[in-house]
Design a protein around this nucleic acid. Sequence first.
RNA 1: CGGGGCGUAGCGCAGCCCGGUAGCGCGCCUGCUUUGGGAGCAGGAUGUCGCAGGUUCAAAUCCUGCCGCCCCGACCA
Length: 573
Amino acid sequence: MRYSEMFLPTVREVPSDAETVSHKLMIRAGMIRKLTSGIYSYLPLGYRVIRKVENIIREEMHNAGAQEVFLPMVQPAELWQESGRWVHYGKELLRFTDRHDREYCLGPTHEEVITDLVRHEVKSYRQLPVTLYQIQTKFRDEIRPRFGVMRCREFGMKDAYSFDATEEGAEINYEKMYAAYNRIFMRLGLKYRAVEADSGSIGGSYSHEFMVIASSGEDALVFCSACDYAANLEKAGAATGAPKPEKTEPVKILPRTEVHTPDIKTIEDVCAFLNVLPVQVVKTVIFNADGSPVVALVRGDEEINPIKLKNYLGCEVLELAKDDMIREVTGAPRGFAGAIGIKARMIEDYSLANMSNFVMGANREDYHLLNVNRGRDFEVSECADLRFVREGDTCIHCGSALKFARGIEVGHVFKLGTKYSQAMKAVYLDANGREQVMIMGCYGIGIGRTVAASIEQNHDDNGIIWPLPIAPYQVAIVPVNSDDARMAQAAEGLYQALSSRGFEVIMDDRNERAGVKFKDADLIGIPYRITIGPKNLAEGKVEIRERGSGAMNVLPLEQVVNFITGAVRKENE
RNA sequence: CGGGGCGUAGCGCAGCCCGGUAGCGCGCCUGCUUUGGGAGCAGGAUGUCGCAGGUUCAAAUCCUGCCGCCCCGACCA
């Protein structure tokens, strides 16, 4: 396209409310504009990239046997009441009423709608399995939208849903999608990692997140330095038993004593006051699990991972106990809780395994206990992995050291099981004529977020560096001086030649100085720039520069088409 | 929802403390010059100073209320 005719408003100055590189560059490159908090318009350049990503996803979905549908965004409350999420989804679900006072919501995801569709049409095992997907705008009323399209309220998402008659079938579908996702993110040219994840409010038995590695990422991920284990920090399993140097002699159990610790509440304070190390202290944390108190014990230098605890308990809502509940179970204010005599269900983390003669709250205001020992002083019947792993911890699979990285979650695959099909009665008749509940899976990719993640990974000081498969245009033609008839003519010739062969080309025919054109071409990240300048043109030559590597080639006009064809073909391999 | 900040030309900002004709840079329009990394000169257009109310002879500036946006936290596929 001719630049002079394009709606491509690039800006030199960075908008003051942009924080991340991708947000700044998407605005500067004229890809997006904000309408209101967390809601963005895509301009032509941005939308071209979106469509490229969508089409790659479409191809791989079709290869994986999924069929495209298009589901409503406005959904009736009844459906959500049936699944139970009208109550549980919370304020992220934007609800409203129509003129008849009927209740609706904007779809933040589409399990209910798709389950409703399939339960009406699928009656027999002969019709299964079926996998459907759509690319839709979702709305989630995020508490705090940020980072441009990375975490916004209205966003484009590809979501696929599989329905199977058998567990084995569901597994196969999950594997198919997992493989398709790997192909998608590979084709998009992203450095990513698939990690084990918690399934969160979508529910279901297990899931993987696809994380694009980026220092600006909102999520922490953990991976093994030796084997291929990788997990979300929330999910990452800690090796059982605290790593302890081998002990030669049995520990002498010392008599328990109570010490006065006025206003000493945190582990840090306790350690300083009693001159002990955090590894000699047991942290006693009281939670409110669906209204009942639950006590979790962990070594003083570790942190409780509430998601692990929640999954262990299988409760609906888990939060830190309020002061009155703490007083109720410990008889003391916050800061002095301990295991001895506490009135609640108690679970200890594996990190307590080798501890003896440790420090603990006394369940009495301003007192702690020294030389507490399990068995003698208290018993805990339940033991589980409750703590956050830390960098350097041992891998639960191979025992090597774990490493940390930051990532942007761009895709998530869930094995849902029967959570929705059960609640919404999506059933079929099996070969024996018996009614069975369908087994579901769901698989999402955030489109806009994927684009932003790509920019986070592919940019320099001058702007975006698009990987060829998602570049909005492949080639930019820059005649250094558009007033010069010979340059303009050469540019026009190349433009026609490349366009007619199916390449996507921007011809910068603006009456701007060369510097401006170069800056814009760099900013919007076009992979190949063909510069037509006076000296080279006098010899019938032009210059081709690669945006990413900066590699430069000067070659005769008539070889340009071949060069670009070859370069694009090579990239696609 | 708690804490903090901001709202003045299309964009980025100054002016506000200490009330007195609304400014700068970029962009935009016109002309001339210039033309390989965001040009120079000359001329020009553009504002209900977020909204509402109050104080005052006089409010961008002081006071009250509201709205919007951003950041930190809590929360969350």
